[in-house]
């Protein structure tokens, strides 16, 4: 039963153009922006302040495109779920799979697997190309914490997509979901995490906590109360909450 649904969801996801577009955009934007920032950093390194040079994190620099690239991942996650609602296909799907939990789980599983593969490829590509452009400033996978950070980058992207799917399952409308998620991850979360007054709360937001895993060098004076895996765990809790909310609403609601 479940394998049938997973196969069907795979057919659904591969047969629409938006999948290819959003995922390739996520990859291209993340890698290209990471390369650009890496190249600029290498040229500007001499002019950097001493303090910044000490806490220089070549791994994190090559992930500089993640902030923008994750937006394409969000679009992917939102569209995978809301396509069902905006087309009305959800009725056909739920008539075919009356077990709504299994339906949502299969959909999320297939989309997450795809997002994870693309996220990993993106993360490794961004790392290697970024390090190549950083030249002598660069690091390698063998250094302590670097492999964790690169794998973490792929996990981060997959979790962002999952979180978006959960939110979209609750909201159903693509415009509403994107209208909330895009500004939140692009602006609001960053502001909340940077302003001292809200930082205590902001650092527990999913992207703030999750992106911790991509850092190898912890800046001096950083008092974040969680480590790399702890941060990713916090993000995973957000994802579970979003998906649980989506599931509860889907189960209760009229289709």
């Amino acid at each position: 039963m479940t394998t049938q649904i997973i196969r069907s969801e795979w057919t659904k996801i591969r047969s629409v153009a938006s999948t290819v577009w959003t995922l390739s955009l996520a990859l291209v934007v993340t890698v290209a922006l990471g390369m650009l920032v890496s190249a600029l950093t290498r040229h500007g390194f001499e002019n950097m302040r001493e303090q910044d040079r000490l806490s220089f994190d070549p791994t994190y620099i090559s992930f500089a495109g993640m902030g923008l690239g994750q937006l394409a991942m969000i679009v992917f996650g939102v569209l995978v779920v809301t396509n069902e609602y905006s087309t009305g296909m959800i009725r056909t799907s739920l008539a075919a799979v009356p077990q709504r939990g299994v339906f949502l789980a299969s959909k999320v599983a297939v989309a997450t697997a795809l997002a994870l593969v693309v996220g990993m490829v993106t993360s490794f590509l961004a790392f290697f190309l970024g390090q190549a452009l950083l030249g002598s400033l660069g690091t390698s996978l063998g250094e302590e914490g670097v492999l964790r950070a690169v794998i973490g980058g792929g996990l981060y992207m997959a979790l962002i997509a999952m979180f978006s799917m959960g939110i979209a399952a609750m909201l159903r409308s693509p415009m509403l979901s994107l209208g909330i998620l895009m500004p939140f991850f692009f602006l609001i979360s960053g502001i909340l995490g940077a302003v001292p007054a809200t930082k205590k709360f902001g650092q527990f937001l999913p992207d703030q906590a999750g992106s911790r895993i991509m850092q190898v060098v912890i800046p001096a004076g950083d008092d974040t109360p969680y480590g790399p895996w702890g941060g990713l765990g916090i993000m995973a809790l957000w994802v579970i909450a979003a998906l649980a909310g989506g599931y509860l609403l889907l189960r209760k609601r009229d289709a």
Binding site: S8, T11, K12, S15, V16
Partner: peptide, 16 residues
């Protein structure tokens, strides 16, 4: 879904 071909539409329903 307008972007999906007729055959793929039926295929994903059949696989379900």
């Amino acid at each position: 879904h307008g972007g999906r071909s007729a055959r793929n539409h039926l295929l994903c329903l059949a696989q379900l």
